[in-house]
């Protein structure tokens, strides 16, 4: 019985770890903001649920599974809410979701957000500096937009 529980929770934990990892990978590789958010918010609830259930099986009949259930409940409530708030903030400041056009080439939305033209913007320098700190991959051809960050990780980890 104990062994069975162990195997079950190991399976849950490992699959949870896999899901979490896939989510992280999606956040790194997806072409534009909203798709990245999709990857992050799905795995935030899915992977987290698997891992927390896996841990719950190890807790025994104590307060611990209850606490894990509370963590799960709160994550389940807060994570989608945070995603909603974030998507709303992005839409408010004019990040457009990307759509493939008929030729299937371009992702217009992956350009970094520009302030809306009609706004009576006070700061001219802002536009130029919008994405200054880290050079975005936007200047590259739209085919493999996430190439650059990948290279960067490889360099940092070595």
């Amino acid at each position: 019985m104990h062994l069975l529980l162990d195997i079950l929770s190991a399976m849950l934990l490992l699959s949870g770890a896999f899901f979490v990892f896939v989510g992280g990978f999606g956040v790194m590789r997806m072409p534009e903001f909203y798709t990245r958010m999709h990857a992050a918010s799905l795995t935030d609830t899915g992977g987290a649920a698997l891992i927390l259930f896996g841990l719950m099986l190890q807790g025994g009949f104590t307060l611990i599974p209850l606490k894990l259930a509370a963590i799960f409940l709160f994550l389940f409530l807060t994570s989608p809410t945070a995603s909603y708030a974030l998507a709303n903030a992005a839409l408010l400041s004019g990040v457009k979701p990307a759509c493939r056009n008929e030729t299937g080439k371009a992702f217009p939305g992956e350009q970094p957000a520009k302030p809306k033209p009609k706004r009576k913007s006070a700061s001219k320098a802002v536009k130029a500096r919008k994405s200054a700190p880290v050079k975005p991959p936007a200047g590259k051809p739209a085919k493999r937009p996430a190439k650059k960050p990948t290279k960067k990780t490889a360099r940092k980890k070595s």
């Binding site: 709160f74 409530l77 807060t78 989608p80 809410t81 909603y84 708030a85």
Partner: peptide
């Protein structure tokens, strides 16, 4: 959604 969830928490 933020209003409901936030106030609930």
């Amino acid at each position: 959604i933020p209003r409901v969830v936030g106030k609930m928490l």
